[in-house]
């Protein structure tokens, strides 16, 4: 795979977006540059033959993260943004110079390490690919994610639940509430017609996850993004979100995964050692519940944190 013109342009774009995301004076502009960085990096994942990651990057990296940043910038620019901006101007010259030298040294060390290591070493590729075939899961990434290193994913689901709990604790325990304000009729039409398609796509991603790119995280992020847009346009109003139910839905992913992990221990097998005959069924069930849980988490992280008292002027007056 030698260097194509597209690769060079993509890499130049990535570095340029990253630098301007850090250096631009205006906060909003730097976030827009970061979002375009996220989309370019989704392209980079495609060039590096990693479709699963491109899906996740587009949905989570550029989508949810970008939305969270824009929402925070909106609040912080009005709030103590000015104080922070002054604080920024006051970063002493020495800190800047020291930081730049340290970052340069870090880059030199990394570049030298990368250039002196044969990048094309076999590593775990063969073992993982044969293992995936053995286990009968066509998509090797899902095999690694939910079987060989399923314990990593279990802890990672815990990280997501932890993030929601942290955000709720910071809003002093208020349950997940749904923002609502005057909605743009055009967007309501689009979102209304797209909602079923989003639901279908999310369900397909979970189902296809075991054989082709997809899986719980990508489908959860997609579904979560759909719920966010519905929430922002106030179309979730009729469905009052009962705090108990929302908490259960948030914890369901982790609890399902823990149940799937502990069941083998009760049956005398090792932790997370699925029974061979039930492997695909268990993985699909866990991925399904996981997707629902992640969708609620992604939506909850955004809607819970975006409901701030002075959320005045969104949408047409």
């Amino acid at each position: 795979m030698n260097v194509a013109v597209l690769d060079v342009m993509l890499c130049a774009g990535l570095v340029w977006c990253a630098v301007s995301a850090l250096v631009k004076r205006d906060l909003f502009a730097s976030i827009v540059m970061f979002i375009s960085f996220g989309l370019l990096s989704a392209l980079a994942w495609i060039r590096l033959a990693a479709p699963d990651i491109a899906l996740a990057e587009a949905a989570i990296g550029a989508g949810a993260t970008g939305a969270l940043l824009l929402d925070a910038a909106g609040v912080l620019a009005r709030g103590d943004g000015s104080a922070a901006e002054d604080a920024e101007r006051r970063t002493p010259r020495s800190a800047n110079v020291l930081g730049t030298i340290a970052a340069g040294a870090l880059f030199a060390a990394l570049a030298w390490a990368l250039l002196s290591t044969p990048l094309d070493a076999p590593r775990l590729a063969a073992a993982a690919l044969t293992g995936a075939r053995e286990v009968g899961i066509a998509n090797p990434v899902t095999a690694v994610l939910l079987d060989f290193r399923g314990y990593d994913t279990l802890l990672e689901v815990a990280v997501l639940l932890l993030a929601v709990m942290g955000v709720m604790a910071l809003r002093s325990g208020a349950p997940v509430s749904v923002a609502s304000h005057a909605a743009d009729p055009l967007v309501r039409l689009l979102v209304g017609s797209l909602a079923p398609a989003v639901l279908l796509a999310a369900a397909y991603l979970v189902w296809a996850g075991t054989s082709s790119p997809g899986g719980a995280f990508q489908s959860g992020a997609l579904l979560g993004a759909g719920v966010i847009v519905l929430g922002l346009e106030g179309m979730l109003q009729p469905m009052r979100v009962h705090p108990g139910a929302s908490r259960l839905l948030l914890a369901a992913g982790l609890l399902a995964f823990v149940a799937a992990a502990l069941e083998p221990v009760a049956a005398g097998r090792a932790l997370l050692q699925y029974a061979p005959y039930a492997r695909k069924g268990v993985i699909l069930a866990v991925e399904g519940i996981l997707a629902l849980s992640i969708a609620t988490t992604v939506a909850g992280l955004f809607l819970a944190s975006s409901v701030t008292p002075d959320r005045g002027k969104a949408g047409r007056p």
Binding site: D184, L186, V187, L190, K313, R316, P317
Partner: peptide, 17 residues
């Protein structure tokens, strides 16, 4: 087509406001 039309409409509305 659909998403760029909606997006530009939203941006124009926000800019006008």
């Amino acid at each position: 087509l659909v998403s760029s039309a909606t997006a530009s409409n939203l941006i124009a509305a926000a800019a006008y406001q």
